[in-house]
């Protein structure tokens, strides 16, 4: 069996992971940020005004910074989910759906059953894991490409949420398509009063640490990476690649699902219609974090600030927040052409 360092599948540039070509990654980031003003000008707005609104909205005062951090929480969870899955050879575009199912389970256990917060989070993680395993089993047993199945599961999850908040889980008043507010015992405590920043921040730090340890310091993580780097070689070495993939997929679903439950129990405190969008940004987070759980943390913070700043930019400067997607897309392009990010199949 090869030594762990020999099967490092894809080394990505990252700003913060030691040893990676930092300058290269920094150039791409700068490039992406210089592009945002261009998009703003296309939208017929003043780039200076929009830029000021973006920075102000992301980190202008403590409460804005808390908002950025609260957006970082779900991005870490989904970013970890995508990074872990990539490492195990599973292109998880379904973090969004897994997160929605986790949020749905969390809302059901919290707003409806009024269970304590710990069980709400556990239920969310299990729901996310089950949703991801659907795609995992379809890939391993039936050869269905996860690129398509995970996206389909995202859309189905979106409709299930829409059904639930207009049907069985709708608020007692039955006016808006949303659940009741979670009772206090089901909520995650706030870290800062009057902000959306909640105790989930500590959970995501722990999750990132555990994921890093699992992936790089345990035999299990080694087997996952081996199965992801080269399934054929892994099979030759006596590793059941399908089994490893399924384990990793279950964990990545649980991470996204937990992220969804935390969003409901900590930030929004109720579930409404519509998707989160974090699951798609997570792909950029994972790539920018060099598919390393510890790299995901700063990458998620960056995108969390972009998200909070983007919303503020929309409110004050009139630039649609969807403009941020342009920057994320270009960032993914840049990371895709980075040296040594090649498919190994």
């Amino acid at each position: 069996m090869p030594a762990p360092h020999e099967i490092e599948p894809r080394v990505l540039p990252s700003l913060l992971v030691p040893g990676a070509p930092r300058l290269y990654a920094a150039c791409f980031l700068l490039f992406a940020f210089f592009l945002l003003p261009l998009v703003v000008m296309l939208a017929g707005r003043s780039p200076l005004e929009a830029g000021a609104a973006l920075v102000q909205g992301a980190a202008g005062n403590p409460s804005r910074l808390a908002e950025s951090l609260s957006k970082t929480i779900p991005l870490v969870m989904t970013g970890l989910s995508v990074a872990l899955a990539f490492r195990a050879g599973f292109f998880n575009i379904g973090a969004e759906g897994q997160m929605l199912m986790g949020a749905l389970a969390g809302a059901a256990l919290g707003a409806k059953a009024q269970w304590p917060a710990g069980l709400v989070l556990l239920g969310g993680a299990l729901a996310g894991a089950a949703w991801a395993l659907l795609a995992g089993v379809l890939k391993v047993r039936r050869g269905a490409p996860e690129i398509i199945t995970t996206i389909m599961l995202n859309y189905i999850a979106l409709q299930l949420v829409a059904f639930a908040v207009q049907g069985p889980l709708q608020e007692a008043a039955r006016t808006q398509p949303q659940t009741d507010v979670l009772p206090p015992q089901s909520q995650l405590p706030a870290l800062l009063p009057d902000t959306n920043l909640h105790a989930g921040l500590l959970i995501v730090l722990a999750c990132a640490g555990v994921c890093w340890w699992l992936l790089f310091r345990t035999e299990r993580g080694f087997l996952w990476r081996a199965a992801g780097a080269n399934p054929l070689a892994a099979r030759g070495a006596g590793i059941d690649a399908g089994r490893q993939t399924l384990q990793a997929v279950a964990l990545c679903g649980a991470l996204s699902g937990l992220g969804g439950a935390m969003e409901v129990a900590g930030a929004t405190k109720q579930l409404g219609m519509g998707g989160f969008g974090y699951g798609y940004t997570a792909i950029a987070v994972a790539l920018l974090g060099a598919l390393n759980p510890l790299g995901v943390l700063p990458a998620a913070l960056l995108f969390g600030m972009l998200d909070a700043g983007g919303k503020a930019m929309e409110r004050t400067a009139g630039v649609p927040s969807v403009a941020v997607s342009v920057v994320i897309g270009i960032l993914i392009f840049a990371l895709a052409v980075a040296p040594r990010l090649r498919r190994t199949n």
């Binding site: 998009v39 792909i283 969807v322 997607s325 993914i332 392009f333």
Partner: peptide, 13 residues
Amino acid sequence: TGLNLFALGLTGT
């Protein structure tokens, strides 16, 4: 994946 996000953002904006 990048192309999808890029086009979504550009056309939306």
